[in-house]
């Protein structure tokens, strides 16, 4: 297992190299001219060429890639075409808001999802089970911009309870948090339910019941704790997924996170920022998948990694 782990970690280096090359080629294959976009809608050709020269876009592509790799190796991802700021600073500025939103919405999703999931398992095939199933599934079935806009108009415009968007006050995170959480909550509920049902069928639970332990105590002391372990894995995955930034929700709520940055960088074909964002997401996913694979092996003894 340790050797497997070591090899997988070592593999990250060539993978990231491959990702950077792929991202670079891919980004340049999409039509777009960053100099023209930055120079503005009524720029003359001379102005466009000036911006091109300033950004180094007048050099041949392989040369541009060479410069990128040379600098990236020492941790310098260049400067944003759009703002001229170092890419690392740009990413850091937008990672904070995304982290905050991810933490809050994961917390909301865990509370809602586990409550609903437990209800579903304990009251299996009764009305409360059906209602909470429909409720949790409805969360994942609604387009997020629809849900977000409805929340804004109900809670901000009509009731004046919460701010409409932006990141200006502590409460600002509530509505985007709920919108994002609604999808994760459904997955967590589904997972909690099946995990609980599985554990409820285990021998030690039967034994406890046979010994006359109360149903509530069975649930809290014996079942939940055991059922929790796989749920925690899933929560980790969902959290990692959210860390990638939520494009639609961040747009609707003017939340200046990584998703927002991605959209803005696409609008301007800000290749350095886009490449760095792709690399960041890749690192995140490689790490998460490595963890999942390790757990996978740990949980299912039939899977052996060599």
């Amino acid at each position: 297992m340790l050797r497997f782990l070591g090899r997988r970690l070592w593999q990250i280096v060539p993978i990231l190299f491959g990702v950077s090359l792929g991202a670079f080629a891919f980004l340049h294959a999409i039509p777009g001219d960053p100099a023209r976009l930055l120079a503005g809608p009524d720029a003359t050709l001379a102005e466009v060429q000036a911006v091109q020269a300033r950004l180094g876009l007048d050099r041949p592509l392989p040369v541009q890639y060479g410069y990128f790799v040379r600098n990236a190796v020492v941790g310098d991802f260049g400067r944003s075409y759009r703002s001229g700021d170092p890419v690392s600073r740009v990413l850091a500025e937008h990672a904070g808001p995304t982290l905050e939103l991810s933490v809050i919405s994961t917390a909301l999703a865990v509370v809602a999802g586990m409550t609903l999931g437990t209800l579903q398992a304990v009251r299996r095939n009764t009305l409360p089970d059906y209602c909470s199933t429909v409720l949790s599934v409805a969360g994942i079935s609604t387009p997020s911009f629809f849900l977000g806009l409805v929340l804004i108009y109900v809670f901000s415009v009509n009731l004046h309870w919460l701010p409409t968007g932006g990141m200006t006050q502590l409460q600002s995170v509530v509505l985007p948090g709920i919108t994002l959480a609604s999808a994760s909550a459904a997955v967590i509920a589904r997972f909690t339910r099946s995990s609980l049902l599985e554990v409820l069928g285990e021998d030690f639970v039967r034994t406890a019941r046979a010994k006359g332990v109360t149903e509530r105590r069975v649930l809290v002391r014996h079942t939940l704790r055991n059922a929790l372990i796989p749920v925690v894995t899933l929560v980790g995955l969902e959290f990692g997924f959210l860390l990638g930034g939520a494009i639609v929700v961040e747009t609707v709520f003017s939340w200046p996170g990584l998703g927002w940055l991605l959209v803005q960088s696409i609008d301007f074909r800000d290749y350095p920022v886009l490449t760095a964002e792709i690399l960041l997401f890749s690192v995140e996913f490689l790490a998460i998948n490595l963890i999942v694979d390790v757990l996978y092996a740990a949980l299912d003894p039939r899977v052996v990694y060599r």
Binding site: S156, G165, G166
Partner: peptide, 17 residues
């Protein structure tokens, strides 16, 4: 403040933000 989405921008005005 930059608010890209039209419907959200109008909501900010109506909500008093």
């Amino acid at each position: 403040r930059p608010v890209v989405e039209d419907a959200s921008r109008v909501a900010m005005l109506l909500g008093g933000d």
